Simulated assay, not measured.
Amino acid sequence: MSYDSASASRAEGGRRSGRAQRLTVLSGPSGVGKSTVVRELRAEHPEVWLSVSATTRAPRPGETDGVEYHFTDDAGFDAMIAAGELLEWAQFAGNRYGTPRAPVEERLRGGRPVLLEIDLQGARQVRETMPEALQVFLAPPSWEELVRRLTGRGTEPPEVVQRRLDTARVELAAEKEFDVTLVNTSVDEVRERLLALIGVRGDAAPGAPA
């Protein structure tokens, strides 16, 4: 990834700080806008490092190992699990995805803020493997709005839509497990509050743990 000189300077400043950072986990139901918030946040603050997952899925055209994902086979993924090299992992659509532990810990020790954008299952695993992490839940403004987002494309059969809605209900019910909830009424507002929680800018948002 290429940065402009100002962004590179900010990133380098974060690495030189020498102050250990706390991992931030962002989770929430499908369709709530996690990827959009993370994309906007990193466009403004590339010094916030987004973990690159390992996967057994084959690379798609244009994907590069170590950029979109760390690509491996089933044997390699099994070896990472056995060696305790993953903070969390899950299976989806016949493939496995996981967060390598070493790159996360290395950047945290170096003073660089690290963000994980993962599902509920992954967030629960990180709570076990790295309990000091700050767990942030991104919630929709309302259930009706989430339904609109999940069904808005109109390209999926009814049974698939229903599975997505059932999963979203389970994910929303887990909100109380998280340290902080941010309601996604505005991407700009959520981005700024998340940056404050991470510690990149300003003070922690109201309600954030010390």
Rank of each mutant, 00 (worst) to 15 (best):
N95E: 15
D74N: 02
D179T: 11
E177V: 03
P209Q: 08
R164E: 02
L194C: 06
A205T: 10
A123S: 11
G152A: 12
F92W: 15
T155E: 15
A168T: 05
G199I: 11
E88T: 04
D73Y: 01
E132F: 02
A139C: 04
W143R: 15
P113Y: 11
D203W: 10
Y97F: 04
L172A: 08
L115W: 12
G76T: 00
V114W: 12
R109H: 09
A8I: 01
V48E: 07
E40Q: 08
E177P: 10
R101I: 01
V126W: 06
A75F: 01
A54E: 00
P158T: 06
D73E: 09
S35L: 05
E117R: 02
A123F: 08
R15G: 08
E144T: 12
R16P: 06
R16S: 04
A204L: 11
L120A: 09
G14R: 12
S142K: 12
L86D: 05
S51W: 04
E128Q: 09
V161R: 09
T36E: 12
E44A: 12
V104I: 08
Y69K: 00
T64D: 10
V67P: 05
L146V: 04
T55V: 03
V126S: 07
T151S: 05
A58K: 14
Q91Y: 13
R19F: 11
L116I: 01
G207C: 10
G98E: 00
T151W: 03
G13N: 13
T24N: 12
R164H: 08
A90L: 14
V25K: 13
